[in-house]
Design a protein around this nucleic acid. Structure first.
Lengths: 301, 301
DNA sequence: TGTTTACCATGCATAAAATTCATGGAGCAA
DNA sequence: TTGCTCCATGAATTTTATGCATGGTAAACA
């Protein structure tokens, strides 16, 4: 393949559009002389003139006319592909469940955005387990899961550990309840399906009785929010209540932690593993949310 | 329009085809390091990797995969247009009537070809007046004509002047005939239509009588050839018999010359005026065939 | 008709970019 | 482990592009 000088071609394109070397120079932020030389290079390559220089303006020779649309089309093709590629490196859609979104991601999201101000990062909140990267609705996902699918890269963030918490206001002047006294308060369930309280009581060697079904919430987050408003005692995932415990909105009522069989993962498709935006978010998320020392960036996958 | 570094794109294309920087370097006559740097330039431009460097060979990232066909298509578009343009500058088809072809052009054609060995120049011989450049069968034409059409550039080469010639063998030991004695020999007519002999005799103040229709030929060339073989006396265009007079194949029998109202022209379409091949042939032909001092190349049109 | 104006071409100096060379390092294979 | 194959990279060099200032040409102007 023997191609003409490509940079000269671009200059030719602009000059042909403007019918002027001087204006082309302005457009390209070049001097008129530089444009003239580029065109000379191109004309020397073909061995024929591409422009007819007249005092009253520039005209294309028939060869220039033939060349023009080819160059225009070729460059616009490259431009379109480049634009598509560049956009992918500037945009990142993060998926998280509502609980993870509000308890993990959102509190630290601006920190990430500040570190990468050029990145258009958006948070997609979806309920339920649906690692559907094929639909391209999101690029990277926080996900609680037990199994792994091929084609996806999983980074384990932490196991889920549930501990009982409540608002200190719930007890007013009374002493904080022992496990045996939990049933005197409303027990908030962070899920409609999983029997966290039953499992937790079994772990503690107790018989939960009938009061377990009191209040059930859709998400872990809602149950925690309800508890922090004094509605009762809930089982909360440890990593989601650090702030609440620190500022006293919630108090932890027992050290007995229910450790589930599943864990939280950061997941993304293998084909996005080379995207700087994905790499940047992954490294940040691992450092922020993992309960293990973050691996060096280069060996993270 | 913001385009990626174009030379780097070409290197990317070759590297992507070879799945190897080293082999790409060989193809492009560059070192491996230079290829590496071009790819780095391109990756820096996009802000993301285009290749996955593995010890066992190079793979394209999804972005590289997306870029590849666009670059390939774009460059092949440019290549195709360039090829078409270059071919036009290397090829030239010259049209001439059989007489002009054999008497003017062919004797000096190799001289022109030797001066421009890279030019693929061909001679198209067409009988009759047909300045049809629209059909693109030829690029430049030797033509005898009286009127000029718009869109075509005419260079007058010379007027047509006919003088009587014959082979010296025709007269054996006899003295050469005077005008009055011409009728004792066969008179060869270089045309079926034009009454050159009648006009010539009228010019000489003589009455041609009946013998004028003796032998008629299709072309000037054929009549001259016939005369040179001793078949009779013909009227020959002066410029076509210079060689024959010089080497004694023909002798001129009178200084009376029939000057026609038309002249020989070199003709080509205006839109080919910038082609170097046309310019080269025009300048050469004007110098070779014109009866006037050739104008400087720059002002020839 | 002489003058102005708008453009492109070009010699020369300089800045920028590409390229090479030599070397280093990483991953695979024997 | 030892080689081998590739790609990355620092530093020097060559090549190329660019700017600047100037010159030339042809049209427009007055």
């Amino acid at each position: 393949m023997k191609l003409p000088p490509l940079n000269a071609l671009r200059v030719f394109l602009v000059a042909a559009e403007h019918h002027s070397f001087t204006k082309a120079g302005e457009t390209l932020h070049l001097t008129q002389g530089a444009v003239s030389r580029h065109i000379q290079t191109l004309e020397a390559h073909y061995g024929l003139p591409l422009f007819v220089r007249q005092a009253r303006g520039l005209t294309l020779t028939p060869e220039g006319v033939a060349l023009f649309p080819a160059v225009r089309d070729a460059f616009s093709r490259i431009e379109a592909a480049s634009e598509a590629i560049s956009r992918r490196s500037r945009e990142l859609r993060v998926k998280a469940s509502p609980s993870i979104a509000s308890r993990w991601v959102l509190p630290r999201f601006t920190q990430f955005r500040n570190r990468y101000p050029d990145l258009m990062v958006s948070l997609v909140t979806v309920t339920g387990f649906d690692p559907n990267f094929k639909s391209r609705e999101y690029d990277i996902s926080f996900q609680a899961c037990e199994t792994q699918e091929p084609g996806l890269i999983y980074h384990r963030l932490r196991g889920a550990r549930f501990v009982p918490v409540a608002s200190p206001d719930l007890f007013k002047d009374k002493p904080r309840p022992t496990m045996a006294q939990f049933m005197e308060y409303p027990l908030l369930h962070p899920s409609h399906e999983d029997q966290f309280w039953s499992q937790w009581f079994a772990l503690s060697g107790m018989n939960p009785g009938n009061s377990i079904e009191a209040y059930a919430f859709d998400t872990l987050d809602l149950a925690i929010t309800a508890a922090s408003r004094g509605m009762g005692i809930t089982l909360a995932e440890e990593s989601m209540i650090a702030d609440d415990l620190a500022n006293g909105t919630l108090v932890q009522l027992s050290d007995v932690a229910l450790v589930t069989s599943w864990a939280y993962y950061l997941i993304y498709p293998q084909e996005l593993a080379t995207l700087p935006s994905v790499i940047a978010f992954r490294d940040w998320a691992l450092a922020e949310f993992s309960d293990t020392p973050p691996a060096p960036a280069s060996s993270a996958q």
